[in-house]
């Protein structure tokens, strides 16, 4: 009796192991080489990390599910490159935890959105897309201008980012909240630190037009304005091809 049941269980466990084996090997074999991909992909030495304000904006982008309608991945197809700009490179999203490549274009791709429109345009558009583009089906995000941005946990955000591999310095982590404020208040004393820590090219502006208060609108627009601008790597092959 015992032997019979022992055999039965062995059979069930054998089935389980076979399923695990068959189902995992494919994935492992296919994904493993991607973790050595840095050996082949061109590096982008000029690549910078997101500022705390941009990171906060990115998190709002995630929170609101913008990725459900917008992709951030321009494919290597002629019409896409002509419509949206140089195709996306792997290195451009190397600090993106998680990536936001998207899977659906109910709205246009925005991988190269940075600098395409003014801050005012974005604020008006986010407040009510149909004020700017009458046919738009994008939701209105009026509440963003009303919502004060939460900054007390930004240091924690940067710390966690560093733990998963984004090179934030101690200095950046310690000053995360101040930097977030400074980036949207160009005349404040905090603004200087932002340029020092993240580079002169960083956008330091009152994104929502109101330098005094730091809103979620500031953060989101700051993020939208940096899309595709963290590195020049993608623009280089184009330029050399033209020569």
């Amino acid at each position: 009796m015992f032997g019979f049941h022992y055999r039965l269980e062995r059979k069930a466990i054998g089935l389980v192991l076979a399923i695990i084996g068959v189902a995992s090997i494919g994935g492992i074999v296919e994904i493993a080489p991607l973790f050595t991909i840095h050996q082949t992909v061109e590096d982008a030495p000029d690549m910078r990390v997101y500022t705390p304000l941009e990171l906060a904006g990115r998190n709002i982008y995630i929170r609101e599910g913008c990725y459900a309608c917008h992709s951030q991945m321009i494919r290597t197809l002629r019409d896409e490159v002509e419509r949206y700009g140089p195709y996306s490179l792997a290195v451009e999203s190397k600090y993106d935890h998680p990536m936001l490549w998207g899977s659906k274009r109910t709205g246009p791709d925005i991988a190269r959105l940075g600098g395409k429109y003014s801050d005012d345009w974005h604020v008006a558009h986010l407040n009510n897309p149909r004020d700017v583009v009458p046919e738009s089906v994008m939701p209105a995000y009026r509440f963003l201008s009303r919502a004060e941005l939460r900054t007390d946990d930004l240091s924690n955000h940067l710390k966690a980012q560093r733990r998963v591999g984004v090179p934030y310095s101690d200095d950046m982590i310690a000053n995360a909240a101040a930097d977030a404020y400074g980036q949207a208040a160009p005349d404040s004393p905090q603004a200087e630190g932002v340029a020092k820590r993240y580079g002169k090219a960083t956008n330091i502006r009152a994104f929502d037009g109101k330098p005094k208060d730091l809103t979620e609108m500031d953060a989101l627009v700051a993020y939208l304005q940096i899309l595709g601008r963290l590195t020049d790597a993608a623009y280089k092959p184009m330029a050399s091809a033209e020569k």
Binding site: V29, E30, A32, P33, T36, I37, Q39, T40
Partner: peptide
């Protein structure tokens, strides 16, 4: 290295 892994896959 990457090439070996890719070849294997």
């Amino acid at each position: 290295d990457h090439d070996i892994l890719v070849w294997f896959s």
